[in-house]
Design a protein around this nucleic acid. Structure first.
Lengths: 211, 211
DNA sequence: CTATCGGTGGCACTCAGTGTCAAGCAGTGC
DNA sequence: GCACTGCTTGACACTGAGTGCCACCGATAG
C-alpha cells in the first residue's frame, strides 16, 4: 500500500510541511468560514510564506477537498479486487466504504472529517470543487465497471451511470452524517442509500446501445 | 410563460445589454478557450466597460453556465403539472426534456447550446459551476418529488436521490450529444439514459427510513 | 430650468494564483 | 575547509477576478 511515499527523508519533510499547512487551514476555515479566511491568514498561522502554500496546494479549495478526495486509488483498488460475480451494487458499496472505514479507524480524525464534510457541503465554492473531483472518481469507477461487466464504455451508458449512482449514494450518506454517528450508523446510512440505487445497478442489461 | 420580463423599456434595454455581453463572451470563450480569454477581452469585444460586465454576471463562469441553467423554473413547473399517478421516471424524463425541447425549437440556438455544453464539460472550472447549479436543481426537484410521493425529504433519501439520478441521466445525454444530432436522436439518448435509472426510480419503496 | 433616478465608466482596492530569482541548507567529492 | 549539486524556501513583481465608491450622463417629472 506504500506506493511512492516515504522516500525516507525529503519526502517525510515534505509531508510534515503539508500537514502543518493543512491543519492550520482546516482549523481556520472550519471555524471562521471559507470566504473570510485568506491564504495570508493560513500561512501566518502555519508560520510559512504564501508562496510555499501554493507549492503544496493548487488552490485554497484544494487543501480542503484533498483532505477527503485523496483516497480515489484505494476505492478503485477495492472495486478491482471484488469477486467478478458479485452484483455491482454490492461491489460498489464495498468500494465506497473504504474512505469511510479509514475515517472510523482513526476516531480522532473521524470527527474532523465530518466537520470538513459539513464545510464542503455548506460552501458553494468547495462543493463545486468536490463535485469536480467526484467526476474523476466517476470516470475511474466507470472504467473499472466496464472492465468488470465487459461493456464498452463508449457505446453503453451503464458503466458511467452506475458509477454516478454509487457516488450519489455516497453523497447522500455524507449529507445525512450527523455529529456522534458511529461506524454502525454510517453503515446503516450507506445501506439505505444503496438500497435506493440497487434496482438500477443490478438490473439486467436493457440498453441496446444503438446509435 | 412571461413571468416578470418585459417591463417594456428599462427591462428591455437591460436585456439587450445582457445579450450583447453574453454573445461576445460565448463567441470568444468557445473559440479561444475559457482560460485564455479575460473579462477585458470580452468587454472590449462588446464595447462596454469591465464594471458593467460584473453588474450583469456574477463571474466569468456565470455568463456561460447561466446560458444553460436558467431554465430551472420551467423544469419544476413541468414536473408539477405531470399527472400524479405517472411513474417518477416518466415524469422526470418529461421535466428534464423541457430545456432540450427549448433548444430544438430554435435550431440556430441549438448548435450554440451544444457548443456551450462541450465548453462546459471540457473546462474544469465551468464544469464545477455547472454541477453546483445542478445541486440547486436537485434540491428543487427533490422537493417537488417529495410533494408528489408524500415522502418526508428529511427522513427518506428517495426524493433527493431520485432527483440526482434524473440529473445524472441528463448529464449522460449532454455528454453523448454529438454534432448534427437532431431532436429524434436526442430523444433516443434521453430514453436510453432513463432506461438505466428507471428501475431505481420506479422501484417500490424499500427504505424503512430508520434513524 | 432643475431635481431626481437608473445605468454607466473610471478608479482604487483586495485577494487568488504564477513566474522568477536569490538565498539557505542538506549531502558529496576533493 | 571548500566547491559543487540538488532541493526547498521566501521575497518580489505581476496578471486577472471581483468589489466598493463616486462622478457622470441621459431621460423624465415638476
Amino acid at each position: 500500500m506504500r506506493s511512492r511515499a516515504d522516500n525516507s527523508l525529503a519526502e517525510r519533510k515534505r509531508q510534515l510541511v503539508a500537514d502543518e499547512l493543512r491543519d492550520a487551514a482546516l482549523m481556520l476555515l472550519a471555524t471562521k468560514g471559507f470566504d473570510v479566511v485568506t491564504v495570508d491568514d493560513i500561512v501566518a498561522a502555519a508560520g510559512m510564506s504564501r508562496r510555499t502554500f501554493f507549492r503544496y496546494f493548487a488552490s485554497k479549495e484544494d487543501v480542503v477537498v484533498r483532505f477527503l478526495a485523496d483516497t480515489s486509488a484505494d476505492i478503485i483498488t477495492e472495486l478491482a479486487t471484488r469477486p467478478p460475480a458479485e452484483p455491482s451494487s454490492v461491489a460498489l458499496r464495498h468500494a465506497l466504504w473504504v474512505p469511510l472505514a479509514a475515517c472510523n479507524d482513526h476516531p480522532e480524525h473521524s470527527e474532523r472529517a465530518r466537520v470538513v464534510v459539513r464545510l464542503i457541503l455548506d460552501t458553494p465554492a468547495l462543493h463545486a470543487r468536490w463535485l469536480e473531483r467526484q467526476i474523476e472518481w466517476r470516470a475511474e469507477l466507470a472504467a473499472e465497471l466496464a472492465n468488470r461487466s465487459g461493456l464498452d464504455p463508449h457505446t453503453d451508458p451503464y458503466p458511467r451511470m452506475a458509477a454516478g449512482m454509487a457516488l450519489l449514494a455516497l453523497d447522500t450518506v455524507l449529507q445525512r452524517w450527523q455529529p456522534g454517528d458511529d461506524e454502525q450508523h454510517l453503515a446503516k446510512l450507506m445501506d439505505q442509500a444503496f438500497a435506493v440505487v440497487a434496482p438500477a445497478l443490478d438490473a439486467p442489461a436493457a440498453s441496446p446501445a444503438a446509435g
